[in-house]
């Protein structure tokens, strides 16, 4: 069972109180973008075994979206942070690097 702390209201919410929103930190490529960019944006998703970044909505609570970093294998939660961020906060990355040295997820990773 997954328990995520909503950064908007501070409640430690059970997985069943949340709605999953898919992968986090997608860059939207809309009208006028190239076919490759648009295809990436629309279809190509990470299927991470390990560190992963996701969107969640506190549906049975304050109703706000937030982002979470967790390990898909061990269910370890590295942290949650506001949805109004375009990349994981340094504090979260540091925590992941400490627990998973050498981690990599899309353009983000320990080697930066």
């Amino acid at each position: 069972m997954l328990i995520l702390t909503c950064p908007c209201c501070g409640i430690a919410a059970d997985e069943t109180e949340l709605s999953p929103g898919g992968e986090a930190h997608l860059t939207r490529h809309g009208p006028g973008s190239g076919d490759t960019d648009f295809e990436d944006y629309l279809f190509n998703r990470e299927n991470a075994r390990g560190v992963h970044f996701e969107r969640w909505r506190h549906a049975h609570g304050c109703g706000k979206w937030f982002l979470a970093a967790r390990d898909t294998v061990t269910m370890q939660v590295f942290g949650t942070y506001p949805a109004q961020t375009t990349e994981p906060p340094q504090e979260i990355r540091d925590r992941i690097t400490k627990a998973r040295p050498g981690w990599r997820w899309r353009d983000f990773g320990a080697a930066e």
Partner: peptide, 9 residues
Amino acid sequence: RRTRLAQIA
């Protein structure tokens, strides 16, 4: 505490 009671909010 806003939460879920069995199947409802």
